[in-house]
Design a protein around this nucleic acid. Structure first.
Length: 425
RNA sequence: GACCCUAUCGUCUAGCCUGGUCAGGACGCGAGCUUUUCAAGCUUGCAACACGGGUUCAAAUCCCGUUAGGGUCGCCA
């Protein structure tokens, strides 16, 4: 039985790199019918924070990466102590003050066959005696990690490339304790756009940041899985399908640059095919946050509006900007847009249109279009001549959904009012 | 500095293992179609095997080196 784990340290939020590591572990487990363990490595009492742990758990859940078993290293200290004692009594480790160090024999080659990179060899001449237990009684990273991986029956350790040089040190610990050495797979790192390491300076690195930006979890997951792995010529692949195709051996060796443009495109693809009602549910929190709606909003109306903008947003947050004109109380057209888009004075035309629209009993797509086209014909204009300025007048933007759908969504009252206000003298 | 990992369009990648394809797809960018604008959709264009040696009839693919990038050298994880 395959068993893997993701072992984050709650000294910070779950970031993109960690999420990708968790994702590959999860996909490997699912693809092999194995188990996925989530282990919180909170041995650093100083830096570990409960709020970070909660945030990590929330992010994992949001991403859809459920775990089969859950552990916290802070609850297992006695286990590490026992194993350290054992090594000391067997003469494989020694005390240095309160600390316990592992004796490392020199001039030995430590080899392991990485599932992604193939054979990797280190010489123990490069490795000094390893701290197992620190002076304060807490276990050092490599030690608690090995003890846990062994005791939890982890068969495959899938982690970032930055752990390659930790591997020989840990193999030495497995050997000293007589534990079976698991298989290792080291994932390539995710780099920032500049090719440098992903850091706070890069912008959004926390999974929660992406959530707040309006990315949907399916899209983030889809994008992340394609960083270092490819199912062939396929860009949109739901997690479930991906698991069927996933193979750890097909994972790339090269670090990938994070590309926001493609993430956004991926997000847009998921938004586009989402059920409108479901998409609306996702949008509601964002709309409430900025005060566009409250609890007793008009569901039917919103459903229609969301439908209009579905193919016009890359992130959920985009909707706020694009459709904002439908919600705002105090509507106004920015000066720069007015200057460039409303150059011609259409006071008379706008008011004629406003009057006729206002007289409409049923304010729907067909009736508004009929009124509009009728007026345009009478005035000897082309539809395009009036469509554009009207759109700007009622939406404050030169782009958007079809004009008549937009007017209907806005409603008669606001449409008429904004038309009359546009060139008010 | 030492040790380790890596190298295909600007970016993500397929192809590499089992040498022989116009080096394929996607994002982005350009053009066109559609259209009341934008988005979507459809068609289409530009764009890459880091460099140098081998091996071979033939190298993106196998080998060596160079260069470049990355990682690790904590009683952090």
């Amino acid at each position: 039985m395959i068993k893997v784990r993701f072992a984050p340290s709650p000294t910070g939020y779950l970031h993109i790199g960690g999420a990708r590591t968790a994702l590959f572990n999860w996909m490997y487990a699912r693809s092999q019918g194995g188990q996925f363990v989530l282990r919180i490595e909170d041995t650093d009492q100083e830096r570990s924070k409960p709020e970070y742990e909660k945030e990590i758990l929330d992010s994992m859940t949001w991403l859809g990466l459920a775990w089969d078993e859950f552990y916290k290293q802070s609850e297992r200290f006695s286990l590490y102590q026992q194993h350290a004692e054992k090594l000391v009594s067997e003469g494989k480790a020694y005390r240095d003050g309160n600390a316990v160090l592992l004796t490392v024999a020199k001039a030995r080659d430590i080899k392991f066959d990485d599932l992604i990179r193939g054979l990797i060899v280190f010489n123990t001449d490069e490795i000094k005696d390893q701290v197992l237990m620190k002076s304060d009684g807490s276990p050092a990273y490599s030690f608690s990690c090995v003890v846990d991986d062994a005791l939890m029956g982890i068969t495959h350790v899938i982690r970032g490339e930055d752990h390659i040089s930790n591997t020989p040190k840990q193999i030495l610990i497995y050997e000293a304790m007589g534990f079976k050495v698991p298989k290792f797979a080291h994932l390539p790192l995710i780099m920032g756009t500049d090719g440098a390491r992903l850091s706070k300076r890069f912008g959004a690195v926390a999974v929660t940041d992406y959530r707040a930006e309006g990315f949907v979890p399916e899209a983030l997951v889809n994008y992340l899985m394609l960083l270092g792995w490819s199912p062939g010529n396929q860009e949109i692949l739901p997690l479930k399908k991906a698991c069927e195709k996933f193979s750890i051996k097909k994972v790339n060796k090269t670090a990938a640059q994070f590309n926001m443009e493609k993430l956004k495109w991926t997000n847009g693809e998921y938004i586009k095919v989402k059920d409108t009602s479901e998409l609306t549910d996702l949008l509601v929190p964002f709309l409430k946050e900025v005060g566009y709606i409250n609890d007793d909003y008009d569901r039917q109306w919103l459903l229609n509006v969301v439908g209009l903008f579905k193919s016009r947003m890359l992130t959920l947050r985009d909707f706020l900007e694009r459709a904002g004109f439908l919600f705002v109380k105090d509507f106004s057209i920015p000066e720069d847009i007015r200057a460039s888009e409303l150059k011609t004075d259409l006071f008379k035309e706008f008011n004629m249109l406003a009057d006729r629209l206002n007289a409409l009993e049923s304010f729907d797509h067909v009736s508004t279009e009929n009124v509009f086209r009728g007026l345009v014909a009478e005035l000897g204009m082309t539809a395009a001549d009036l469509v554009h300025p009207v759109r700007v007048a009622i939406t404050a933007s030169p782009v958007g959904p079809g004009l008549f759908e937009t007017m209907v969504a806005l409603g008669k009252e606001k449409t008429v009012f904004r038309l009359r206000e546009a060139f008010k003298k």
